[in-house]
């Protein structure tokens, strides 16, 4: 029955910025790659994102931020996921994120950061290769 298994991805925009072009393009690309994408919309707190990830039992949480608040928000999400026993959920991030911040985010448990110009195919490939199925 494994063909009925779908990778479920929560695409979330933490923080207040309303630029969701990237998030929506990713959402569509993931859907077209056969995944089920739960889109949470704008202005999500880390608490809301993690609660949604739990209820939706997702395999992946994809975060997008263009306002510069990523250093504050992304690690909050990974910490809360661990706290809720969802440490095996793959967390990836995207947006305008300076290179010097990437190691900080990775140390906080974000598996990969995709900056502008990344092909959606690369993101899909990364998810397929790294998703941890229980």
């Amino acid at each position: 029955m494994s063909q009925s298994k779908k990778i479920r991805v929560l695409v979330a925009k933490p923080g207040l910025d309303g630029h969701d072009r990237g998030a929506k393009v990713i959402a569509r690309a993931l859907r077209d790659a056969g995944m089920e994408v739960i889109y949470t919309g704008l202005r999500q707190t880390p608490e809301q994102i993690v609660a949604a990830a739990l209820q939706e039992n997702v395999d992946v949480v994809a975060l997008s931020s263009l306002s510069g608040a990523h250093l504050h928000l992304f690690p909050r999400v990974t910490a809360l996921l661990k706290e809720k026993g969802l440490g095996d959920v793959l967390v990836i991030g995207g947006g305008i994120i300076p290179a010097e911040d990437i190691p900080v985010l990775k140390a906080a448990g974000v598996a990969a950061i995709f900056t502008p110009g990344t092909a959606t195919a690369a993101i899909i490939e990364f998810i397929r290769a790294n998703v941890k199925r229980t």
């Binding site: 779908k6 959402a27 569509r28 993931l30 859907r31 077209d32 790659a33 056969g34 995944m35 089920e36 994408v37 739960i38 889109y39 949470t40 919309g41 202005r43 999500q44 809301q48 949604a52």
Partner: peptide, 14 residues
């Protein structure tokens, strides 16, 4: 076409 889906109803129940 793809078997995938975009589920967006949570947006209004955040």
């Amino acid at each position: 076409f793809s078997g995938g889906a975009i589920l967006g109803d949570r947006v209004r129940m955040a």
